[in-house]
Design a protein around this nucleic acid. Structure first.
Length: 274
DNA sequence: ATGGTTGCACGGCAA
């Protein structure tokens, strides 16, 4: 598939094991023109990340931050990577953030901690870690994001911030991913850029929009008890280039699916300097 | 109210 000649199409997908999901990655890149694919939950030791296979699928360039068993993020690109960096937060090296500069844009691939089940930071260390991770991102973003370099932040943020980002707002208020404190902290993180929510530039906030459907539903499509956990944000200077967005939910219905659907955003070509 | 499914370090844990 030819990619957009001067524009850039970026996709983000929590694949829930990159090795297991390689055939589905192949189907995705066969169906859509993607220049950069950001993946979360690679779930493989660094020497077991399928770099050759990803190169064969059209992504010879990569910036990967991975570990055995859990987590792991990667940026796979058709275009050269000009600079890359692995980032870690909260005193852990847990492979949840990687940055790569492609076509002059700083691309960040993120995997925010899920946070467990009990929405009490005193009783549940995983929820405490999630809240502290969001605080660390907010602090980092307010200190270190260079306004002169266009940036794009994407991945599994594990928070559904709007009422229409969950299938039932009232039922979800005490469920992790949609608790008030998480929604507040994601809001603070977004304002710290400020970051533009690219997906909601295309789908108004009154409309439901989901990227994740649990494996545990009998029929994910019929029940449609989804959540918008995956996001793509851009710096304000990049917002005028937002040209298209798709949640590729067809992939949720494939054989051996991930529980997340890919999010695909297209940027129009940069205007020439005058 | 509970349980439902998936993936990895092969089995308890994380999601």
């Amino acid at each position: 598939m030819a990619h957009s000649p001067n524009g850039l199409t970026v996709a983000s997908w929590n694949v829930n094991s990159l090795r297991l999901r390689l055939p589905q990655v192949g189907r995705l890149v066969g169906a859509r023109s993607i220049d950069v694919l950001c993946v979360q939950e690679i779930k493989a030791a660094p020497d077991k990340v399928p770099l050759m296979e990803m190169a064969a699928l059209g992504f010879p360039h990569h910036a990967v931050h991975s570990m055995p068993g859990y987590n792991g993020v990667g940026i796979f690109s058709r275009l050269p990577i000009e600079d890359e960096e692995a980032l870690d937060w909260c005193g852990k090296v847990d492979c949840r953030h990687v940055r790569a500069r492609v076509a002059g844009i700083d691309l960040h691939c993120l995997y925010v901690p899920a946070g467990g089940d009990l929405p009490d930071p005193e009783e549940n260390p995983k929820f405490r870690h999630k809240l502290e991770f969001l605080d660390a991102l907010t602090d980092w973003s307010s200190r270190s994001v260079d306004p002169d370099i266009p940036a794009l932040l994407t991945g599994d943020f594990n928070v559904a911030p709007l009422e229409t980002d969950v299938w039932d707002h009232k039922k979800m208020r005490r469920i992790i991913t949609h608790t008030p404190i998480e929604r507040e902290k994601l809001g603070a993180f977004q304002r710290s850029g400020p970051w533009v929510d690219a997906m909601r530039r295309f789908v108004p906030p009154e409309e439901k929009l989901f990227t994740w459907w649990s494996y545990r539903a009998r029929d994910w499509k019929a029940a449609n008890r989804g959540r918008r956990l995956d996001h793509l944000w851009v710096t304000p200077t990049l917002a005028p280039r937002l040209a298209g967005m798709e949640v590729f939910d067809e992939a949720r219905g494939w054989e051996l699916p991930s529980d997340h659907a890919p999010v695909i955003v297209t940027l129009s070509p940069a205007l020439a300097e005058t």
